[in-house]
Amino acid sequence: MTTDGDTTYRVVPVRHYGRWVAAAVIAVLAAMVVHTIFSKIPTGQVACSTTNGVRACHAVMEWRFGWDVVFQYFTSSLMLKGLVTTIELTLIAMFIGIVLGVLVAIMRLSPNRLLSIPAWIYTWFFRGTPVYVQLLFWFNFAALYRYIAVGVPFGSAHFFTFDTLNITAFIAAAIGLGLNEAAYMSEIARAGLISVDEGQVEAATALGMTRAQTLRLVILPQAMRVILPPTGNEVISMLKTTSLAASIGVIELTGAAQNIYASNYKIMDLLICASLWYVIMTTILSIGQYYIERHFGRGALRNQPLTPIERLRRDLKGIAGKMHTSRPGVVR
């Protein structure tokens, strides 16, 4: 409503007819898809029974998406073991990736060429070869180096020897995924480190902080704001990339699903079952990512935006306020 002098006019909003039609089409298509997902189809078999001398027959139906099978295996011990392995692999690989990645990024930014060039070569090599190939490479590492020993350089005395045949599929997957991740993490960390204003370093230096203190107390905490969002993506991506480990025989989530459908041929049902677990875990990770980003965003914005839960509470309060009083609700 708008007032012009003493007269009051009604405001007529613009009608978006095109949008309405598009929305209707999408709504119908979505309804159809949902319907097929939760529909039953005939198996081709017929079941007959005789009641009071009357014989009745009907087609046997089953879920198109095999929901009964999906939930039968959803919490089976094989799938749960696979889930735990997936989580373990993700955590170990990301730990290697983040620690090594930050180290490579710091080396890359060093004024000393002997540090920066190896760091560049590392990133170049591990980004330049496929993860799948790298996993196979580490799994077959014994073909290149039968033993790894710590001793006198170029000498023959050894203090410690490791038999590379002891590299299991799980270790090969953890190393391969971690080293590959470190290459990507180093670029993410480097972007974060160079995003911090030069003045921050000067102020820290002028206070008498050492280079290590400046990095730890001033640069890294501020770089985190830039580093975290892509790192969250990397964790989510890693969770799914661990499925490649199935190819070298690690029984993680996908491997477990494969093992089960190899014996009962319910391929789609078990793939859906594994996918559900992946979706649940990535959802949890996304929520965690949101709150971690908020924590490291302190000081970057004048006022922190509300969390979705806080916003919901505020909106509910607004509605409740409107219901209790007949006055127009004020949203705080």
Binding site: G199, A203, G208
Partner: peptide
């Protein structure tokens, strides 16, 4: 670092630690 810590410095762009 030790001798720098005995000299205070104030910058044109403040350079307060933002975090």
């Amino acid at each position: 670092c030790q001798s720098r810590s005995e000299i205070g410095m104030v910058f044109q762009r403040f350079n307060l630690f933002a975090h």
